[in-house]
Amino acid sequence: MDYQPIWLTFRLATITSLILLALALPVAYWLAFGKFKGRGVVEAVIGLPLVLPPSVIGFYLLLAFSPSYWFGAWIEEILGIRLVFSFPGLVIASILYSLPFMVYPIRAGLQSLSPSLREASYTLGKNEWETFFKVLLPNCKPAILTAFVLTFAHTVGEFGVVLMIGGNIPGVTKVASVAIYNEVEALNYSVANQYAMVLFAISFVILLLVYSINNRLLRVRQSA
């Protein structure tokens, strides 16, 4: 068995989750507390990956990333990278595909905090920025952890989008889920089984660790 697809899968999931965390924090804050019109439109767009077939997202991203269309051509001209059939393209696609899994839990976590925490921080002279990082975020750690793990797991489990825009280039875009598909197509069931078992075991251990940590965090908070 070739470990490269497994390694690539976890590299993709880690990079995607980290970038998405940085992007989702302001978006979640904005959705939780912002006063603006058109909130529904923004929420609908973020939630689209939940309901659309991955192949639909993959198809449009394929068109967008293609150098024959303006976005792909523009990126290639500005940054000199081709997004289609490349690792950076996979990262961008995964970010869009997993967006709701990062944004929604963090928004829910922020909204579950008592509004008086924010108000108290303001009356103590602190601005929104400081309030966000020193008061709000530390008090929704379980929500952030959940969001991070959901995003990570969702990216590990990604198949349709990757297949559409990444293809099957070993070491570049051939992630574990695609490798399993290939091996099954080639009737190499035992190799497919090995990939599947490794993904299964690692995913289970990650979830187990996260929920143990989460339970401990919650217990610490509840203990009086």
């Binding site: 008592s114 008086s116 925490l117 108000e119 108290a120 008061v135 008090n139």
Partner: peptide, 8 residues
């Protein structure tokens, strides 16, 4: 505040 609003 009525609910104290202490930072947990």
């Amino acid at each position: 505040f009525q609910d104290y609003a202490l930072f947990p």
